[in-house]
Design a protein around this nucleic acid. Structure first.
Length: 492
RNA sequence: GGUCCCAUCGACUAAUGGUUAGGUCACCACCCUUUCAAGGUGGCAGUACGGGUUCGAAUCCCGUUGGGAUCACCA
């Protein structure tokens, strides 16, 4: 049977980076085996639904390029796999379980359940639905149950977990897992509002959608025995399970909003490349056993194997993400810069600045090894796009008695170079000649030039910077520095 | 607390019974140098602990400890 996997988020806001990794592994697994990757929206809890989150999830997936083969966002496809649109289906299946004796009705109120849990807590035992004392088909008897139902009393359907025995299943990543039935709760399957809970909907959907592999986060491991029991009750062959290690905060707890950004959109907004981001999260919990760090999506597809997925959680380390993004940045600047130039143009427009693509590209090339993220490019080299802002501290440290004279001479010397020869090699030549005549080293004027040309102490090489800046602007900046006076400080 | 999962440098990981326990990020030093980077070279740093099994254990088994997840009419 060919592989069919699904990513099944619930629409409660945004796509979590852990969710993206789960989606990615599902996608990689499907592509690797020539299978199908599906998206299913698990929205059976109407109270938690957040407007617009389905679109947010779909757009994040789209950004990453791991688009589902069939999805609710693509009308006309085999979907729609939106659970709230299939509630009738779950009710039918709940009825089957009721009929076969694998489920029963319960009429307890929220308060009664709270009290039950309170008692259990005080007695030091695990909170679990106590079938023998609560109000349900068993304690009430068939007639009373029928009467309550006929009256329309609020009722839920609970799964009837065997008293003894054990549930056993195989996890593709963790091996055999065994849990005693006595530790499995009589989970609610159908809520009193007639909506299914996750457990029922999930099992019914995975079966009816012919899902072959359930690849999901480790947080689902504890409820998997319930699911296995449900498959058995229905007489269905369960899919294969693979529970992925969690993505962790620095303190090793489950990656959460409290300790940093967890929404994929946050990282999109920060300017990370999808290639770098995918590469990075792919390697969190999985490794193809080599010493390589950089992989394209196609390469990930080719290499991906469930058996290489790790068992233990992985800390989401921003530093490594930064490094990886910088690697991709350099590569893109040198090989495929159109997207980057477009991004920079956007940032320039926001500042009311206008430059040609060709110029923007030259600046980008100039600074490509000094930034990690394309979003930093314009701010980093703002002096290339706008008037230079002089850092007064740098000025104070750099400026000496000789500075004015040196700048005047170098400005003259630059002026003498023909426009079309204003290239870094030619400028270098001229400056060296000048320095030699004065018995000076480049070191002696480097910071002065930097001050005049960029205003700040950090940046690309001076000759290259001048070439990109152009003759006119270079000369102008050198000259205007001569008469520059630092803005008056309050002490003066 | 019950149940389940997990355990190699600070972080991500490689090594599936025999390696001086390897690589990457971060950190440190040096080189390069025109500041800052980038790059190069080197360094720091790990098999949680205790028992077994074996000629031989990071690797298999048991226990301890530690961490995590989960225990809703949420997913």
């Amino acid at each position: 049977m060919s592989v069919r996997v699904r990513f099944a988020p619930s629409p409660t806001g945004y796509l979590h980076v852990g969710g993206l990794r789960t989606a990615l592994y599902n996608y990689l697994y499907a592509r690797h085996h020539g299978g199908v990757f599906l998206l299913r929206i698990e929205d059976t809890d109407q109270t938690r639904y957040v407007e617009g989150s389905v679109e947010a999830i779909v757009s994040a997936l789209d950004w990453a390029g791991i688009t589902p083969d069939e999805s609710p966002a693509r009308p006309g496809d085999a979907g729609p796999y939106v659970q709230s649109e299939r509630t009738e289906l779950y009710r039918e299946y709940a009825a089957k379980l009721l009929a076969s004796g694998h489920a029963y009705y319960a009429f307890d109120t929220a308060e009664e359940l709270d009290r039950m849990r309170e008692r259990q807590k005080n007695a030091g035992i695990a909170p679990r639905y106590d079938r023998s004392v609560m109000r349900n088909s068993f304690t009430l008897g068939p007639e009373e149950t029928e009467r309550l139902l006929a009256e329309g009393a609020p009722a839920v359907v609970r799964m009837k977990v065997p008293i003894s025995g054990e549930v056993k299943f195989h996890d593709e990543i963790r091996g055999t897992i065994v849990v005693p039935c006595k530790d499995v709760d009589d989970q609610i399957l159908l809520k009193s509002d007639n909506f299914p809970t996750y457990h029922l909907a999930n099992v019914v959907d995975d079966h009816t959608m012919n899902i072959t592999h359930v690849i999901r986060g480790e947080e689902w491991l504890p409820s998997t025995p319930k699911h296995v029991l449900l498959y058995q009750s229905f007489g269905w062959e369960p899919p294969k399970f693979a529970h992925l290690p969690l993505l962790l905060n620095t303190d090793k707890s489950k990656l959460s909003k409290r300790q940093g950004d967890v929404a994929v959109h946050d990282y999109i907004a920060k300017g990370y490349f999808k290639e770098a981001f995918l590469n990075f999260i792919a390697l969190l919990g999985w490794n193809p056993s080599g010493e390589r760090e950089i992989y394209t999506l196609d390469e990930l597809v080719r290499e991906f194997k469930l058996e290489n997925v790790n068992k233990s959680g992985a800390v989401f380390d921003l530093q490594k993400l930064e490094w990886m993004n910088a690697q991709y940045l350099k590569w893109f600047v040198e090989n495929d810069h159109s997207r980057l130039v477009a991004t920079m143009q956007e940032h320039l427009r926001e500042r009311g600045l206008e430059w040609t693509d060709a110029y923007v590209q030259r600046v980008l090339f100039l600074i490509r090894e000094r930034i990690h993220n394309i979003n930093d490019a314009v701010a980093f080299a703002l002096y290339m796009f706008a008037e230079r802002m002089v850092d007064d501290e740098f000025h104070a440290k750099t400026w000496t008695e000789q500075s004015a004279g040196l700048l005047a001479d170098i400005a003259d010397l630059c002026e003498a170079i023909p426009e079309e020869e204003f290239l870094h090699t030619r400028i270098h030549e001229a400056v060296q000649e000048f320095l030699k005549a004065r018995s000076l080293k480049f070191k002696d004027v480097a910071n002065l030039l930097r001050l005049a040309l960029t205003g700040i102490s950090v940046g690309a090489g001076m000759m290259d910077t001048m070439e990109v800046l152009g003759k006119a602007r270079s000369v102008e900046r050198l000259r205007s520095m001569i008469t520059y006076t630092p803005s008056a400080t309050t002490g003066e």
